[in-house]
C-alpha cells in the first residue's frame, strides 16, 4: 500500500509539549526538527529529547522523520547518530543543492546502520531550498533508492531568488513545477513548503487546493490545527470514490471469471487505472470517508 503523506507536521525538538503531544493530531508524518527551530544552546538537549521520543510507544504507529543539522555543522553527525539509533523512519536533509549532498548523507546513514545492525533502511527526504537545488532536482530525485520524496523549502528558496513570498505564490511557480516533475519522473513523492502565516486560514486553504491541483502528495505544516483542513482538501470526492469502487469491483470480477481484459463503460481498464482506483479508496479510508470493511 502506498504511504500517504498529506501532512508532515514540523515539531521543534526543543518544544517538549509538542514533542510529547504531536501524535495526538494524527499527521501522516511527524517531523521532528533539530535544525532551524532549535537555539544553538539547546541543540544537545533537543537531540536527546528526540532520540527518546522516537522510541516512545506513542510514536510506534506513526511515521517519524527528523530534520537534522547539516553534516558540515558541528551538530550534523551527532544528530544522525542519535536519531538513526532512535529509529527514525526518515531523515530530512536540511538543504539539498546537489546529488553529492544526498550521497554524503546516505553514506553517513549507512555507516551508522551497519554499526547498530539496523536492517530496515532509513529513508531520505531531500529539501530543495535554492535555485541550484531546483535546477538539480531531476538528478537529485533519481540519485538514491532511499529517497522517498523531495520537498520545497520556500523561505530559503525565495531569499536565494532575491524575492519574497506572496499570498499568490507566483514566485514559487517554477520551483513547484520542477520539483513535481522531478519527483514524478523518479516515481517518488513531492511535498510543498510550509504556509507562512498561521493566522490566515483562507490563504492556507487556497494554497493547499492549488498544490493538490498541481499534483503534490502533501505539505509541511507547523500548526497542528491545519492538519484536518488539509486532510479534508485532500479527501477524494464522492464521485471519485464511486468510480473507484466500480473499477475495483470490475477488476475483481474479471479476475474471478478468468477474463484477461477488464472493461468498464466500454473502456479498457488497465493496471495503472486500477492502481489509481485503489489509491483513491485508501485515501478515502484515511480521510475517514469510508470504513475499511466497505472496500
Amino acid at each position: 500500500m502506498m504511504k500517504f503523506r498529506r501532512s508532515m507536521l514540523f515539531v521543534p525538538g526543543a518544544n517538549t509539549a509538542m514533542v510529547c503531544n504531536a501524535f495526538v493530531y494524527k499527521p501522516d508524518t511527524v517531523m521532528f526538527d533539530l535544525e532551524d527551530s532549535v537555539a544553538l544552546s539547546e541543540k544537545d538537549s533537543a537531540r536527546l529529547m528526540v532520540y527518546h521520543a522516537l522510541q516512545h510507544f506513542t510514536y510506534k504507529d506513526i511515521e517519524t522523520a527528523v530534520r537534522v543539522n547539516p553534516l558540515d555543522s558541528v551538530f550534523g553527525h551527532l544528530d544522525l547518530q542519535a536519531v538513526i539509533r532512535g529509529g527514525a523512519d526518515i531523515i530530512r536533509l536540511p538543504k539539498t543543492d546537489t546529488v553529492d549532498d544526498v550521497l554524503d548523507m546516505q553514506s553517513a546513514i549507512e555507516k551508522i546502520e551497519k554499526e547498530i545492525g539496523r536492517t530496515k533502511k532509513t529513508k531520505l527526504l531531500a529539501a530543495i531550498e535554492s535555485a541550484e537545488g531546483v535546477v538539480n532536482a531531476v538528478q537529485i530525485a533519481r540519485c538514491s533508492d532511499r529517497l522517498m520524496g523531495i520537498a520545497l523549502g520556500a523561505e530559503d528558496y525565495v531569499r536565494d531568488l532575491r524575492t519574497q513570498r506572496t499570498k499568490e505564490g507566483t514566485e514559487l511557480t517554477a520551483a513547484r513545477a520542477q520539483i513535481l516533475l522531478a519527483a514524478r519522473a523518479a516515481k517518488i513523492q513531492a511535498f510543498d513548503s510550509v504556509f507562512p502565516d498561521v493566522r490566515d486560514k483562507e490563504g492556507f486553504i487556497r494554497e493547499v487546493e492549488h498544490v493538490r491541483g498541481l499534483g503534490f502528495d502533501g505539505k509541511s505544516l507547523v500548526n497542528p490545527n491545519q492538519i484536518s483542513i488539509l486532510h479534508d482538501i485532500y479527501a477524494p470526492s464522492e464521485k471519485e470514490i464511486d468510480w473507484a469502487y466500480e473499477v475495483v469491483e470490475a477488476a475483481a470480477h474479471a479476475e474471478k471469471n478468468g477474463l484477461g481484459v477488464v472493461s468498464l463503460d466500454g473502456k479498457m481498464v488497465d493496471a495503472p487505472i486500477i492502481a489509481r482506483a485503489e489509491f483513491t479508496l485508501e485515501l478515502a479510508i484515511a480521510s475517514g470517508l469510508i470504513g475499511e470493511e466497505d472496500e
Binding site: 514533542v19 544537545d44 538537549s45 536527546l48 527518546h52 521520543a53 522510541q55 551527532l78 542519535a82 539509533r85
Partner: peptide, 28 residues
C-alpha cells in the same frame, strides 16, 4: 513531564556537566 522527557533532560544535564557528548558507539 513524561518519563522519557525526564530521562532526556537529566542526560543532557549530565553531559553538560561533564562537557562531553554521548558516545553513541558504546550504546545501542
Amino acid at each position: 513531564a513524561l518519563d522519557f522527557v525526564i530521562k532526556a533532560r537529566l542526560q543532557a544535564a549530565v553531559f553538560r556537566a561533564c562537557g562531553t557528548v554521548p558516545s553513541w558507539e558504546e550504546q545501542s
